[in-house]
Design a protein around this nucleic acid. Sequence first.
DNA 1: ACAAGAAGTCAGATTTTTTTGACTACCCAG
DNA 2: CTGGGTAGTCAAAAAAATCTGACTTCTTGT
Lengths: 97, 97
Amino acid sequence: MEETETCPAQRLLKMLSGKWKAEIFRLAVESPLRFNTLLRQIQGSNKQSLSTALKELEEEGLLEKTTIKLKPLHIEYNLTEKGKALIPVFQHLEGLS
Amino acid sequence: MEETETCPAQRLLKMLSGKWKAEIFRLAVESPLRFNTLLRQIQGSNKQSLSTALKELEEEGLLEKTTIKLKPLHIEYNLTEKGKALIPVFQHLEGLS
DNA sequence: ACAAGAAGTCAGATTTTTTTGACTACCCAG
DNA sequence: CTGGGTAGTCAAAAAAATCTGACTTCTTGT
């Protein structure tokens, strides 16, 4: 309940934990995300969880939601600058393991 | 239940998620860990959770458990090389947020 | 010998996270 | 005006993570 917030990295870490967040992030690096597409791409996931994860990633300022009001009229999620700044961290992480 | 293991960074991320792991890691960077000391250092935690976390960090090869068979005869947890390799990642993470 | 500390384990309870299924609202095509 | 797609929400259920308290074993100090 009460957050003790010891180190700053901890919050980032915390926000990338959750069953689907890393996967969502990975796909967001490749291209803008759309809700139903994501639902099909990430097999095993479900609306509610993706919805929650996207909301949290957005709140953390890693993703940005935009309504595209053209042709097909839809919603897109894109990495923010802060989100992009995480890419090297992931790459470094992949270098290990 | 079934793990899909998409990207390698995911497993690292997964293993640093959990309520106490980041904190344990942070303390391990500073000095070798001892169970009961940790229990006192991390307020709000409990034996069972720490035990589980330490076991998992050990299984991931980030921590190493050693029995010191001298003077007070006790057990120590130290970062492995793989564990140390994560330090820069944490530092980078702190650089953001 | 006895008490206390270290390092746990175990079962059960509680809490948090994730999943399910039903339902909404808007737009577009035929 | 009906069906299908997009982008969700909501409440309830199920699953996973965490916490509690009791108990264990080994060692050390007095």
